[in-house]
Amino acid sequence: MTTPNLILIAIDLVAALVLAFGLYYPRHRRRDLVVAFIGVNVGVLAVTSVLGSAEIAAGLGLGLFGVLSIIRLRSSEISQREVAYYFAALAMGLIGGLSQTSVLLPAGLIALILVALWAVDHPALLAQSRHQVVRLDRAIADEAELRTELAERLGATVTSATVQQLDLVNDSTLVDVRFRVAAPAKRVAGSASRTAAPAAEGRVARAGAAR
């Protein structure tokens, strides 16, 4: 094994740790998926290092992505966000394990994957957008009435509502709803406290003068 390959393996392992412990876990707090991401990355890295070559690289990559798809279908349900982390861990292991004569391009691609996930999964990006599956205790067939009811219940602006189940017998509606919440309350509270502070000081001053 050449020196560039050893360097890439080290870069991939560091990148996998950053992905799992620096990006995913601080934001989503799922320990089981941290184990899965590290395991997928190291496993793909090991297999690619043993079998990888220029002749079989494309077929090996497609095969590994296919295996991950099977695991995705037969495992517990995970979100699309976590699927992205899975594929990032797999892609980094694949890049790090292939035989290379230069370190710059593979290292740059691994760094690009990390930067892309850091950016698109940042809490500040689309922070007001939400997604929930809601069951209402009424069977509502009218879309406009359904949106109004959801907006009142959630206290938010409904952007999309898809009825998954309309139960006219038990009088209930199961809805996949996407909505946008208002600005964080702490900002409003902070501005209110700053507005109230001068008024309170004025009242204290007037009370002192009266005494």
Results as ranks from 00 to 15, higher is better:
143 E>G: 00
92 M>H: 02
163 V>S: 03
19 L>F: 01
95 I>P: 06
73 L>G: 02
11 I>R: 00
202 G>P: 06
44 V>I: 13
86 Y>G: 15
74 R>V: 12
102 S>G: 13
64 L>H: 08
16 A>F: 04
161 A>G: 11
1 M>E: 08
90 L>R: 11
133 V>Y: 01
161 A>E: 08
34 V>P: 13
92 M>Q: 04
147 R>H: 00
125 L>D: 07
6 L>Y: 07
161 A>F: 09
88 A>M: 01
43 G>T: 12
1 M>F: 09
27 R>N: 10
66 G>F: 09
10 A>F: 10
179 F>N: 02
115 V>F: 06
111 A>M: 04
118 W>R: 09
196 A>N: 08
70 I>A: 06
93 G>P: 00
135 R>L: 15
196 A>M: 12
35 V>N: 08
3 T>D: 03
173 T>R: 07
167 D>K: 00
103 V>I: 15
65 F>Q: 11
159 T>M: 07
170 N>T: 11
145 E>W: 01
104 L>I: 13
120 V>R: 00
163 V>K: 00
191 S>N: 10
187 R>E: 08
116 A>S: 12
6 L>R: 03
159 T>N: 08
30 R>H: 14
85 Y>R: 00
74 R>H: 03
99 S>L: 15
75 S>D: 14
52 G>Q: 13
4 P>S: 11
141 A>G: 13
92 M>S: 02
189 A>T: 03
190 G>Y: 09
105 L>W: 10
69 S>I: 14
74 R>E: 02
35 V>H: 12
7 I>Q: 00
106 P>Q: 11
60 L>D: 06
154 L>F: 11
98 L>Y: 03
135 R>T: 15
20 A>T: 14
186 K>W: 14
39 G>C: 12
170 N>W: 01
178 R>W: 09
147 R>A: 00
14 V>P: 07
198 P>C: 05
168 L>V: 05
9 I>L: 08
1 M>P: 12
38 I>A: 04
153 R>W: 12
82 E>V: 13
162 T>F: 04
194 R>K: 15
57 A>T: 06
202 G>F: 02
42 V>C: 05
80 Q>G: 13
39 G>I: 12
200 A>M: 14
183 A>F: 10
107 A>D: 03
162 T>R: 10
140 I>F: 01
209 A>H: 13
61 G>M: 03
48 T>L: 04
60 L>H: 07
67 V>F: 06
71 I>E: 04
8 L>C: 10
79 S>E: 07
168 L>H: 06
211 R>M: 07
66 G>N: 11
61 G>T: 05
189 A>E: 07
184 P>G: 11
144 A>H: 02
170 N>M: 05
145 E>M: 03
162 T>M: 01
185 A>N: 07
118 W>N: 07
141 A>D: 09
78 I>N: 14
41 N>I: 09
88 A>S: 13
133 V>M: 08
128 Q>A: 15
123 P>V: 09
207 A>S: 14
18 V>W: 01
193 S>P: 01
174 L>Y: 03
99 S>D: 15
133 V>Q: 06
89 A>W: 00
136 L>D: 10
126 L>P: 01
48 T>H: 04
61 G>K: 00
90 L>Y: 08
